[in-house]
Write a protein that binds this DNA or RNA. Structure first.
Lengths: 345, 345
DNA sequence: TTGAAAGCGCTAACAA
DNA sequence: TTGTTAGCGCTTTCAA
């Protein structure tokens, strides 16, 4: 059965389509009795305005596209929920797509989104080694775009992200205050600004505490669980004996914890652990992991708000970069145990 | 800047709009030289067909709507990814929305999705206490709909879900084989078929093992972490002394673990724990929790396939109910410790 | 305050 | 094989 059209509603209610349209759009130019009659007919016929027709006429889809790397990384569902809430509040819907951090997927997704005439794009960029022509093409086409979480370098684009340098510094300060000096760092792909920032924060704090940087304690992975697992095994079997590990994100931390467990080491007894980004399940298990918790929901929420603001006012001359502060949540994984051999040397 | 239209492309290429349309749709009725000229012009003008206009004409949006309860429950991201992959493979995009298990949100979402004229709806129903008129309205309107995860009762609708009875039985069998007889059950809202099924599986196995059901060991919550936490505290302080707890989902298990930890009990030393549904972070912490792992990705994937199949062939006379089997993953949380007082009575 | 009608960009039926 | 055109359902002017 076909869906009712505005014409059918108008006929049934005994008014013109213009009047029905006015009622739909909440115009107060319509007499109360007519308005009631129309609304009643709408309910009666279970009428739902055809969005495609409306889009065609107004050239607005009220659709936003969002490209994230992977929804199964718990950082992104929160971000997606923030985006959804902000979008719905303004009458928009969001199509979310996963790039898995693969450049070709990102390109195809962006292309599909353009065909759909989305009113704006939220993008968590994949590492691209400088191949950013497809992103520049979006900017050139005047589709409003805001980058989330990862701020691409060398592209004039607005963004909302966590202040990763400050967040990392806060965490390292905590570790150093506990007496740790041999702190290892498991980082993400250094193409990504966020990965660089976390490494930078690490270096800053070591320098501030007059701790010499030991290159062998800095390992680079790719923000995935498998990578955290491998690097941790490698690190713990390297004989470099760090007393603490700082991990660049939650997924890697999961791998690190598994490796520590498998090697029969105790955390925090044998080794302390702290993470940038929250860890799935954190707080329900032992040890609760000390984590720099990002305002993921806010990144999504403010990203949409910024996007729609820019859309409303026209793209600003200079891009806006919003930096949100993270929060340090101290857990058992960096707890000092009296009996612990960790810091006694 | 406006985007190019098919008319402009036709003019520039010196052909009619009909010809451009034929080229776009890959018709082989077009002479090679014209086709090349048109394709060249399309590339030149960076033309992208207007999806809204096409939708209006063909009354197909190639959009699917998906309503889930909460993306931050890790079960759903997997399901969403399965749906996305299956949809993209057939040229569809998915709009995912969270109902938070609230009936009014579900209604509003369904209404928005209908306005968007989505080609099909994937729905994880919220508990509704029999208020399912809005779902029946979708069915009446002939929009293909497939329910995921939770099979609503008394509504003729296709679905893809986990075989919760069998999954629970498998898990209880494991617990009973370990010698447990005082097994508590923390369930979800009994309005939901999945919650009922899990309880049913529990009862089935106790009956099979000739264990009398003790009502005080069966607590009912709402599938959320807070509920798992509260019920576990209540249970452990009740003096009923269960030796094992079976929890109805992963989020509740997180709460249960936290409660056990806070009360200073050891798992599995003092109490064993098993869960229907996986637990966030499981496997990286101690204890790894014995879990009935659902094929979440498959539920999403097969849900979309079923939906599109039904759309292609017309709604079938009788709804199809697909039941997928879960897998029991045994962890440390149900490990028998020689020193454990648990089973010595 | 209400109605009539043009037209958004496309597809598909039909004509040439 | 290619061109012409009606019309999808809506918003929005303009007239009444």
């Amino acid at each position: 059965m076909r869906m009712a059209t505005i014409k059918e509603v108008a006929k049934r209610a005994g008014v013109s389509v213009g009047t029905v349209s006015n009622v739909l759009r909440g115009s107060n130019q319509v007499a109360a009795n007519l308005r009631d009659r129309v609304n009643h007919t709408i309910a009666l016929m279970d009428y739902h305005p055809n969005h495609a027709a409306r889009s065609l006429k107004t050239s607005q889809t009220h659709l936003l596209g969002m490209v994230i790397s992977d929804l199964t990384n718990p950082f992104f569902p929160q971000l997606a929920r923030g985006a959804e809430d902000a979008a719905i509040k303004q009458g928009y819907l969001v199509i979310t797509l996963n790039s898995d951090d693969q450049l070709d997927r990102e390109k195809r997704i962006l292309s599909a989104l353009r065909s759909r005439r989305v009113d704006g794009i939220l993008l968590v960029v994949a590492p691209n080694g400088g191949h950013d022509a497809h992103i520049r093409a979006v900017i050139a086409s005047k589709i409003p775009i805001v980058c989330l979480d990862r701020v691409p370098e060398g592209i004039p684009v607005s963004s909302v992200a966590t202040d990763a340098v400050a967040g990392t510094e806060m965490c390292l300060r905590h570790l150093i205050a506990l007496g740790h000096r041999r702190i290892a760092m498991l980082g993400g792909e250094l193409e990504l600004k966020t990965a660089q920032d976390r490494l930078q924060g690490y270096k800053n704090m070591l320098a501030e505490a007059d701790i010499e940087i030991e290159p062998g304690l800095i390992l680079t992975g790719d923000f995935r669980t498998a990578s955290g697992y491998l690097l941790t095994k490698q690190l713990l079997l390297s004989g470099r004996n760090p007393t603490a590990i700082f991990v660049a994100n939650g997924m890697m931390a999961l791998g690190a914890l598994r490796a520590i467990k498998e090697l029969g080491r105790q955390c925090p007894g044998d080794i302390a652990l702290a993470v940038f980004d929250d860890v799935p399940g954190n707080g329900s298990f032992f040890p609760e992991v000390t984590a720099v918790v990002q305002p993921a929901y806010q990144i999504g929420y403010q990203g949409v708000e910024l996007l729609l603001r820019q859309r409303a006012t026209g793209e600003p001359r200079t891009p806006v970069q919003i930096l949100l502060q993270a929060e340090l949540r101290i857990g058992e994984s960096t707890q000092l145990l009296r009996t612990s051999p960790v810091l006694t040397r």
